[in-house]
Simulated scan of single mutants.
Amino acid sequence: MIVESEADYVLALKRNHRHLSEDVKDAFTGRYTQFTYSTLDKDHGRVEERIYTAFRPQEVLDESQYESWKNLSSLVQVERLVTFSDGTERRDKQYYLSSLPAEAVERIGTYIRGHWGIENRLHWYLDVTFREDHCRARKAYAAQNLNTIRKLALAIVSQRKDKLSIRKRLFTAALNIDYLKELLKI
């Protein structure tokens, strides 16, 4: 559907594609024509370096290994090295498939980083505003249902453009039926 819409994709390669995931991971040996881009961020008492490496799948994989991925043009590895203020380090790697050419590694890196920014911001709102991490709903689909309701409420409240914070908008809506109606556009 993405390709048919004439759009590009950058998709995280997870372990549920075990064979492809293992082959891509093994391919990052440095023997192939690679394109790299790196960033360095200093924030929250840590230094985080990200090294984005991309190359063409045709150099590494048989076509049969990736034929189900339409327009696959690059395999991407993101290596993160985080150095904390106490001197400890953490290193991890994540792999991606993309329809963008390997030469566009900087743009791919920007998309990957942008996605995590959205995810982190959403989680922060759900945790801080709705205290989602303190929720003890565990039975059946209760946690999943509550998460969906919280995201819907967040989307509705976020559309309102006034000087109140999201938390204050929720509080005001709980106390003022007219404000609630305005939020819901009833």
Score class of each variant (00 low, 15 high):
S64Y: 10
V128G: 11
Y96A: 03
Q65M: 13
F130Q: 06
P57A: 07
Q58N: 13
A27R: 01
Y125P: 06
W124A: 11
A142M: 07
D43I: 09
K93I: 00
E106L: 00
W124I: 02
R46H: 08
E63V: 13
P57D: 08
R121F: 13
G109R: 03
Q77I: 00
R138F: 02
S99L: 05
R46W: 02
I118R: 06
L146A: 04
L40R: 13
L122P: 06
R46N: 11
R56E: 15
T36K: 05
V82S: 02
F84V: 02
N120S: 14
Q144Y: 07
R107L: 14
A102L: 07
V47E: 14
V105R: 04
A137L: 14
S85V: 07
P101Q: 04
L81P: 04
I112T: 09
Y111N: 12
D127V: 06
V47Y: 02
R91M: 03
R121P: 02
N145K: 09
R121I: 02
A143P: 01
Y95H: 03
R107Y: 08
P57I: 01
L152V: 11
V47Q: 12
H44K: 11
S68V: 13
S98D: 03
I149G: 08
Y96E: 01
K139Y: 08
E48V: 08
R138S: 10
F84Y: 14
L75A: 10
G30D: 04
H115V: 05
T53A: 06
D92A: 00
E63Y: 09
